[in-house]
Design a protein around this nucleic acid. Structure first.
Lengths: 240, 240
DNA sequence: CGTTTATTTGACGCGGTTCAATCAGTGTGG
DNA sequence: CCACACTGATTGAACCGCGTCAAATAAACG
């Protein structure tokens, strides 16, 4: 695939040039020639807010790097009760490695750009490139840490603390460099219903806790989605 | 694997002879000579019910294979609220790979036999033996699946369903071969307080739900710890 | 505009917590 | 051997946080 190569640096595929996953994500584990090999099997896809990327119980044919956007991972009980079990951001890796079919659903929470790679291609490369599996291992361990952190929130925190914890989580992702006493502002990637499903609450309770936080001056919200947090430390103090 | 050695072969370390982790656990990924090398760095340790195996925020010096027993992983908030974020059984691997210090506490829930290996030794072996890291990856992925399953329980199930789900989880572990309509009996590895911390409930609620289940004839309990479930399917029907 | 959907707010009830008492099992010392 | 203390589990009663149901606003869309 010569046309994917850049004029000035023939060794870095064009598609990978401006990709967030190129350095931070799993591709950062690849050498130049391995990256070329990798890129040979990938394709870019854009999905809009609300698109189902992976269906529950669907057969796994491919994996993906998240180049842009936020993805919501969720599970549902037979009677329709839903729980969001994870949020993924660029440059995370998407998909259950070594699984035959998915045990959860993945949905685009915002506009999402994916770099898709077929299952067989990735598994073949992993077998020959230990550094790749190592990088994926690191991400899996991080996801496990996050899941366990969230179990504490789900099991032991009050509604107020849950909502505060959620805002804090998003705020840290929106600006990882922010100091404790800094202010942060961002767009919420989730609807109230999604937030409720993430926190194990109802929409009404989430809404009530948000107004309470607004009255306390901890956050201000405009247009339902634009959030501003004047003092991160004050918010953190409410996370329990 | 034809070259895998059995107990008659003098190359299998004595300590590994009767070890559950030898075949199912991570050591199953090792060739005979690798196992010898591995065993050179390990030591056996026995711990009693209640012993703290890993302290929250403690520096990580070693990992372990669980040869026997049940281990409780938990996190606590500043004010003392506690959440059990995982249970581990033989032949699971214990410890946070690639971490500097532990983000959770591990406690022996029963008498536990561990096969301890220093951090540096394991990391050195992992670097040269991709199959070892692969095996650990598989376990990490399984733990992540379990954590996410449990998030649904914590976030969306009622107290009744939580307790039923817990009993079902333990029952499946006690006898993985049991058919749905079979009966199972086992010793509970956790106190009511631990169960409550696992389910995000109070001791009182757990106790009340247990008596309710007993009245429905779904379980019978003797001596506070011995549980008998006459019909697994009936129990599963209450898990939500 | 009007229609539809998302969010907020209010009133009320219930599930689970809290506080307190009782009971059962286990060990200890007289 | 029994009285006593101690820990863990059960049961009861009162409370309250959050869910449920319903209505009002606000935002999004044709």
């Amino acid at each position: 695939m010569g046309e994917r190569l850049d004029i000035h640096n023939s060794e870095t595929p064009v598609l990978c040039r401006s990709c967030e996953a190129r350095h931070q994500g799993i591709c950062g584990a690849l050498k130049a020639d391995e990256l070329v090999e990798f890129a040979r099997h990938t394709r870019k896809e854009r999905h809009e807010h609300g698109d189902e990327l992976i269906g529950d119980s669907s057969t796994i044919h491919s994996y993906a790097n998240i180049m842009r956007g936020v993805i919501k991972l969720s599970k549902v009980l037979e009677d329709g009760r839903q729980q969001v079990v994870g949020l993924q951001f660029a440059p995370d890796f998407l998909g259950r490695l070594f699984g035959r079919q998915s045990v959860l659903a993945a949905e685009a929470a915002s506009t999402v750009d994916l770099c898709i790679i077929p299952r067989t291609a990735l598994e073949r490369m992993m077998a020959t490139m230990p550094a790749l599996e190592h990088r994926l291992m690191q991400q899996t361990l991080r996801e496990l840490d996050e899941a366990r952190d969230w179990m504490v929130t789900l099991g032991r925190k009050t509604a107020q603390e849950k909502v505060a914890s959620f805002l804090y989580l998003i705020a840290r992702h929106a600006d990882p460099t922010a100091e404790p006493e800094d202010g942060v502002s961002f767009e919420l990637p989730l609807s109230r219903a999604d937030v409720a499903d993430f926190l194990g609450l109802t929409v009404e309770t989430v809404s009530r806790q948000l107004t309470k936080l607004r009255q306390q001056g901890v956050v201000s919200i405009s247009n339902n989605r634009t959030v501003e947090i004047p003092d991160l430390e004050a918010l953190q103090g409410l996370c329990g």
